[in-house]
């Protein structure tokens, strides 16, 4: 059976601590934009924690919402790419082929979640910071679009491990960096094709919603709403 990777985000557990943000950056070799470029909107965050204030003092509330690539089944980013750099894999992931990307940035515009980021220049790491780069993840050069991959390198490693040990993958065995780090276990990752998996169970929750569901993008990330 092929896998269909998905994620569930329990907004009742999420505290906006941003452990996932740094986990993702260090796992996926996301560049440091620096202050000047950050001011010009070039900072990259494959996962971000959106914060929305509601109400005014003293009756204030805040919503946190981690947003990463929703790995849509009907992804608006895919058909618009003229070079197939953005395409759908057999396991339902929206893959971004950096080599194939010529930087039209059309996919980034078409993505309603704004989870696609563009490399405005070549990345620079002040030596010897580059020693901490993850050798399993390619560094993106100038002019290409990048985005969350659900840590495809971890997915592949997990599958290879299971294959080497001649067994089926266990639910929860593969964890993208954000899921691994999340202190409150607000993020859950797994195979949506396995109805018994934790992520399938949570995706069926009555609290479950999809982000911008009415756009018809069929996201594979389910948000479990806060209960207060």
């Amino acid at each position: 059976m092929t896998h269909r990777w998905g994620m569930a985000v329990d907004l009742d557990r999420c505290t906006g601590c941003e452990a996932c943000v740094t986990a993702c950056r260090t796992e996926n070799n996301i560049r440091i934009a620096g202050p000047e470029q950050s001011a010009r909107g070039r900072a990259i965050a494959w996962i971000r924690v959106e914060r929305y204030y509601e109400g005014d003092f003293p009756d204030v509330r805040v919503k946190f919402r981690p947003v990463m690539c929703q790995q849509c089944d009907a992804a608006p980013c895919e058909p618009v790419c003229p070079t197939y750099a953005s395409h759908h894999t057999d396991e339902g992931l929206n893959a971004q082929v950096y080599n194939r990307c010529i930087g039209t940035r059309y996919c980034a515009n078409a993505c309603p979640y704004n989870v696609r980021f563009f490399n405005f220049g070549n990345p620079v790491w002040d030596r010897p910071l580059e020693l901490s780069l993850n050798p399993d993840v390619s560094v993106r050069e100038v002019g290409v679009v990048e985005k969350c991959t659900f840590c495809v390198q971890r997915i592949n490693a997990g599958k290879e491990q299971a294959k080497a040990e001649n067994r089926e993958l266990k639910d929860g065995e593969i964890k993208p960096a954000c899921v691994q780090s999340c202190p409150t276990s607000a993020l859950v990752f797994g195979d949506l094709n396995d109805p018994e998996s934790e992520v399938s169970r949570l995706s069926r929750s009555s609290r479950g919603t999809k982000l911008l569901e009415d756009l018809g993008t069929l996201p594979k990330v389910t948000y479990l709403q806060r209960q207060s």
């Binding site: 943000v21 050798p135 202190p183």
Partner: peptide
């Protein structure tokens, strides 16, 4: 290359905060 929480540690049980993950820098 990367820091993660130690799953066997009784305090953080495999999890790590955003600062701790940057500590390799």
């Amino acid at each position: 290359k990367k820091l993660e929480g130690n799953p066997d540690h009784p305090i953080n049980q495999g999890k790590l905060c955003t600062r701790g993950q940057a500590a390799a820098e």
